[in-house]
Design a protein around this nucleic acid. Structure first.
Lengths: 242, 242
DNA sequence: ACCAAACTAAAGGTTGAACCAAAATAAATG
DNA sequence: CATTTATTTTGGTTCAACCTTTAGTTTGGT
């Protein structure tokens, strides 16, 4: 770490940005808190309103802040959700730095472990909500809702596993997969699986049988993954030729 | 997907940002390419220069662009490196949304698999560079360089494994770990391990023995992880009381 | 007393023009 | 020929004015 760095030519807007971000990360500003108005910040930091705006905009676009207009408006601190990080990964995928094969390998390796942890951590409350998720899979009508509700099962398991990092990873993988499936649907393909695929995993998790939960999850993903890989090839083609 | 959304009140700077980002993701703008000057963009999109600046600043702070002043200056497209994503994770850690325990579980589960894949993919070239990395571990003198060079081994394995997503995960985990270790050093602790710890793994990988590579990596991490967990507790305390 | 319409004020959104600062290149000078 | 000195390009920053959205307040009619 270089103690002395050229501090003079760091853009003002970046300094303002770091100040605000630091206040958020240190807990000084909590979720839903409102930061001062642009004019107040400008006066406080003794910089122009433009510099403040650049800082706020950057934080807004990165997901740290939500900005609303009008009185009672302003910039508010946003929750730290997994999907804020997913967006960055999606960009890497769209820029072809990640392939579906790579993502699939990770998913096949990681998600059984997630199911195992979920089974270990099972309690009355989480058991109830997981059952609900599977039951509601029948409800979905439109294809989009269907994908969403099938996705929900995996996300719920990730929440239950008690490790936020795994939850983020699963979120990332699913958000990209969703992109492919939905695009594939518009292209005439359907890779959404049937409604009974989750039952084995569900039962094992509810029983707290972590080994079985992991095994069944692996089996489920193995079945599903070939379809999605085919779909991605078409997806890539469709993007490239237009 | 809602076909019609309220497009009118999306901030201009965000529209400009999306345009530029899209040009990057679609491959229209490649690595190191220069985007038009602020004044040209403003004229082209028919918006004020301020809006263009907000867009560029946001993309710069998110790591998509690098901006330089002067003639031959401008905004240039940056490479898609793993550490751009690591920064976001580090923020989650600093905001206490992630604990070292969670990160450690993931690392203990994932990195042996990475070592396994690296052993499978071994070839003359990568073998050579990996050997170099381990040999240079002796060279480092200052503690910071020492941490860096020990880290290098894990990063190189991640590169070798042939899966960019794993490479990103390892990068994320190591960047946070590094933060703790370096801060711990300034606090008087030392958890950097000895210089022979990597030899078992190295040998197994060079032999292409994937099972052994995974096992030895697991053993190595088990030994290392208890120290780092203790260190984090002190790290948290130090942050909280100041 | 109540409700709707009109006004007011408090945010952020956007513009245009001017000027500062850094850096590459060209011109002037020793 | 080398060194200094302009010049020019491009981002950095400021200022001041005005637009738009929206919560709250006032007003006026029933």
């Amino acid at each position: 770490m270089e103690l002395f760095q050229d501090i003079s030519k760091v853009p003002l807007s970046k300094l303002v940005m770091l100040h605000i971000k630091n206040a958020i990360l240190s807990g000084e500003l909590k979720n839903e808190d409102k930061i001062p108005t642009e004019r107040e910040l400008a006066a406080g930091f003794n910089v122009s309103r433009n510099m403040v705006r650049e800082a706020i905009r950057a934080l807004e676009m990165a997901g740290y802040l939500e900005v609303r207009q009008g009185p009672k408006g302003g910039a508010f601190v946003r929750e730290f959700t997994p999907d804020r990080l997913s967006e960055g990964f999606l960009d890497y995928y769209l820029a072809k730095k990640l392939t579906m094969e790579e993502l699939n390998h990770v998913r096949l390796y990681v998600e059984p472990e997630v199911a195992r942890l979920a089974a270990q951590n099972i309690n009355r409350e989480s058991a109830e909500s997981l059952k609900n998720v599977v039951e509601n899979e029948f409800m979905a009508d439109a294809i989009e809702d269907r994908v969403l509700s099938l996705t929900k099962f995996h996300l719920t398991l990730a929440e239950m596993c008690g490790n936020f990092f795994y939850e983020i990873i699963i979120n990332v993988l699913l958000s990209i997969t969703k992109e492919i499936v939905v695009a594939g649907y518009r292209g005439g393909d359907t890779v959404v699986h049937g409604l009974d695929q989750h039952n084995d995993v569900l039962k094992a998790v509810l029983d707290g049988d972590s080994d079985k939960a992991a095994d069944y999850m692996k089996a489920h993903l193995d079945k599903f993954s070939t379809g999605i890989l085919d779909l991605e090839i078409k997806y890539r083609d469709r993007i490239n030729l237009k």
